[in-house]
């Protein structure tokens, strides 16, 4: 890319007015943890539903000195992560890394990295569907009133029915939580595994939904409580005896891949979803 091409864009692609609007929404979101703040959600050079919400937040807050990490399902090398990373670096010129510890700004879909995040880091999450109440109240206007009045009884009935029908809280991802004892928030499609990482964390978590035009946040040291019952407590996906086939980790979130055998057939193999974590364990740096 030549010098003249880059001049076609402002730093971070989107114009300064749009950034300012997003930053204002972010400030409001931080001030009201878990509350969904509307924002304009500009058109981006990628399709809505492919991470435009997270991308806009990243571009609104990124600075030239940031070190960026982009992951998708914990993977730094997936197509979506690579595309987003390329777009951000080309329009900002910031350094990138796959090392969670080295990153100052992390954009992610579906996961919070295994390594404990620090107070000098920000995690931006791409959100597909915003409102946890959509399961029980499809009408957005009414759902907004319910949030306003902290009227979450119906969601609790939904959880009750989940226990009654499945014998357990069978919600794999998008697990509803109460943030700061006030707003009910969807945890985006992060697995239950990562939900408690939001609780009293040192890091600022920002959530952006481009399609639904909403921003929300969990600031550092904010209590985050999953919906649970005394006799059916919240549980992660942890299975005793699980381990990563690559690095042998027993305390990480695993995904399974189908590995074809050399002579046809094959087998499902479980490995760490967080590839950088896995790689670092393998090379002995972790």
């Amino acid at each position: 890319m030549s010098q003249s091409d880059e001049q076609l864009y402002t730093f971070g692609l989107i114009d300064e007015d749009a950034k300012r609007e997003i930053r204002r929404s972010l400030l409001k979101a931080v001030a009201l943890p878990g509350h969904q703040v509307p924002f304009a959600s500009r058109d981006m050079p990628i399709a809505r539903g492919w991470g435009t919400g997270g991308l806009q937040i990243t571009l609104a807050i990124i600075t030239p000195t940031d070190t960026l990490k982009v992951i998708d399902q914990g993977d730094d090398a997936s197509v979506n992560a690579v595309n987003l990373r390329r777009l951000i670096t080309r329009t900002t010129g910031v350094a990138t890394t796959v090392d969670t510890k080295a990153a100052t700004l992390i954009q992610s879909r579906h996961r919070i990295p295994e390594e404990r995040l620090r107070s000098d880091q920000i995690l931006v999450l791409q959100v597909p569907m915003v409102d946890p109440l959509r399961w029980v109240e499809p009408n957005l206007e009414r759902a907004t009133v319910m949030h306003g009045e902290a009227d979450y009884a119906r969601m609790w009935v939904y959880m009750y029915e989940s226990v009654v029908k499945a014998g357990d809280l069978r919600i794999a991802s998008q697990y509803p939580v109460i943030v700061n004892s006030r707003y009910m928030m969807d945890t985006t499609p992060i697995p239950r595994w990562d939900v408690m990482r939001l609780h009293m964390a040192e890091t600022l978590f920002l959530f952006g939904a481009g399609r639904e035009k909403r921003i929300y946040a969990v600031p550092p040291y904010t209590p985050v409580a999953p919906l649970e019952f005394e006799d059916y407590p919240f549980r992660t996906e942890y299975q005793p005896g699980q381990r990563c086939a690559r690095c042998g980790a027993e305390e990480s979130f695993l995904t399974s891949h189908f590995v074809p055998g050399p002579h046809g057939g094959g087998a499902w193999v479980a490995s760490c979803s967080d590839t950088s974590y896995c790689d670092q364990r393998l090379t002995g740096q972790g």
Partner: peptide
């Protein structure tokens, strides 16, 4: 629903 609203949390 009424019990849940009254903060009953034991199924």
């Amino acid at each position: 629903e009424k019990l849940l609203l009254a903060e009953w949390r034991h199924v």
